[in-house]
C-alpha cells in the first residue's frame, strides 16, 4: 500500500514530507539523547532483517495464499518506538530509491503511513497496553494482532486521505475506503500473527532482547514527537481537507453523479495548482479554458475543460513531436559520448 508520486499533489506531498521530517528529526534526537548511538549497527542490521524476512513466507490456512511481517510493530517491540521509526524510515527510503516503491515525493506520506502509525500509536497505545512485561504467550499474540490491525487500518486511512486530498485520482473517499479497509484488515491479522510468532520465539531463545524495547520506551515517553506529528497532521487535515469537503458532496453520491455524467467537476483548486495555472495563463498569453461546447455540460460551476477538436489534435501531434525530440536529444547525447 505504498502511496505513489503519480497520485499526489505537491501540497499534500510537501506537507507529509514536513511532518515526517519533524518526526524523524525528533526520533533521531531521542535515540542520541538516550545514548543509544551504539544501537546504530543493530538498527541497520534489523532494517536489513525486515527487508530479508519478506523472503520467508508462511501459509495462511484455508486460503492458499501466504503472508510475511510488515516491520513497524516488530521493530518497535525490539528497539523502542523512536529507534524503530528511524529504521522503518530507512527501509522505506531504500525501497523508494531502488525499487521505485512509492516514489520520492510520496516518501514522506509513506513513512508517515507505515512508520508513525505503528511506532507511535499502535505500539504504545495498543501493544504495550495489552502485553505488559511478563505477559503470557496468548496475551502477546492478541496484543500483536490488535496492534498490527490498528496500525494498518490507520495507514490505509492515511493512503485514502492523501489520495483524495490530492485530487489526481477520481476515486471518491467512501468507495476507496470500502476497498482499502477490509483488505488491510486481513493483512493486519496476518502481519500480527507473524509478528507474534517471531516475538514469542525470540522471547524463548533470548529473553534479554525483547526487554530492550520496553526498557528504552520506559525511559522517555514517545509523547513529544507524537504530539508534534499529530499537530502537523491536524494542520493538514484542517488546511487541506475543508476545501475538498466543501467542494464535493458525500463520496458515494459524488461518484454516482459523475458516472451519470450530469454534474460538474470541481477542478482541484488548491493554492499551488491555481497560482501555477494563473502563471501559465499569463505567460502563455492565451486562456486555456474555452466555453463549454457540449450540451452535456450544465451548470455554471467550474466546467469541464472544453472539448475542442482543434486543440485536441494539436495536443496529440505536439505530444508525439515532443517525445520524438526528447528521443532524438537522448540519442544525440549518446552518440557524442
Amino acid at each position: 500500500m505504498h502511496m505513489a508520486d503519480a497520485l499526489l499533489s505537491p501540497a499534500v506531498g510537501a506537507t507529509m514530507w514536513a511532518t515526517t521530517a519533524v518526526a524523524l528529526a525528533a526520533s533521531a534526537r531521542r535515540v542520541r539523547e538516550n545514548g543509544e548511538d551504539r544501537l546504530v549497527p543493530l538498527m541497520g542490521v534489523l532494517g536489513a532483517f525486515v527487508f530479508a524476512a519478506q523472503m520467508i513466507n508462511f501459509a495462511i490456512p484455508a486460503t492458499g495464499s501466504s503472508g510475511h511481517i510488515g516491520g513497524g510493530l516488530l521493530l518497535s517491540i525490539l528497539l523502542g518506538p523512536a529507534a524503530a521509526f528511524v529504521v522503518i524510515a530507512s527501509v522505506l527510503s531504500v525501497q523508494a530509491l531502488f525499487f521505485a516503491d512509492g516514489g520520492l515525493l510520496a516518501l514522506g506520506a509513506n513513512i508517515f503511513n507505515l512508520g508513525v502509525f505503528p511506532c507511535f500509536l499502535a505500539y504504545p497505545l495498543v501493544y504495550r497496553a495489552i502485553a505488559r512485561p511478563g505477559a503470557t504467550g496468548a496475551r502477546v499474540g492478541v496484543a500483536a494482532v490488535l496492534a498490527a490491525v490498528f496500525g494498518l487500518q490507520l495507514g490505509a486511512l492515511g493512503v485514502v486521505m492523501q489520495t483524495v486530498a490530492s485530487g489526481i485520482s477520481s476515486l471518491p473517499a467512501g468507495p476507496f475506503l470500502w476497498l482499502m479497509l477490509p483488505v488491510h484488515l486481513a493483512i493486519g491479522v496476518v502481519e500480527g500473527l507473524a509478528t507474534a510468532a517471531l516475538v514469542l520465539f525470540i522471547r524463548r531463545a533470548r529473553p534479554d532482547l525483547v526487554e530492550r524495547g520496553v526498557a528504552s520506551a520506559g525511559k522517555a515517553s514517545p509523547i513529544r514527537p507524537l504530539a508534534t506529528a499529530l499537530a502537523l497532521a491536524a494542520a493538514v487535515t484542517g488546511g487541506v481537507l475543508p476545501w475538498f469537503a466543501s467542494a464535493q458532496p458525500d463520496g458515494l453520491e459524488w461518484s454516482v453523479e459523475r458516472v451519470a455524467g450530469g454534474a460538474t467537476v470541481p477542478a482541484p483548486e488548491n493554492g499551488v495548482h491555481e497560482r501555477l495555472a494563473r502563471l501559465q495563463d499569463r505567460v502563455a498569453g492565451m486562456p486555456d479554458y474555452e466555453p463549454p461546447s457540449g450540451a452535456r455540460t450544465t451548470g455554471d460551476a467550474p466546467a469541464w475543460p472544453a472539448v475542442n477538436p482543434g486543440k485536441s489534435l494539436a495536443g496529440l501531434v505536439g505530444g508525439f513531436a515532443t517525445l520524438l525530440l526528447v528521443t532524438l536529444a537522448a540519442l544525440a547525447l549518446r552518440h557524442r559520448r
Binding site: A25, V31, V40, A48, F51, A52, A89, V91, S93, V94
Partner: peptide, 22 residues
C-alpha cells in the same frame, strides 16, 4: 539526521548479507 544516514548505509550493506542468508 546523522543517525538516519548511517542507518541507511548500514541497511543497504546488510540487506545483501541477510538477504542471501534468508
Amino acid at each position: 539526521p546523522r543517525i538516519f544516514t548511517a542507518q541507511l548505509l548500514f541497511l543497504y550493506r546488510y540487506a545483501f548479507v541477510l538477504g542471501g542468508e534468508a
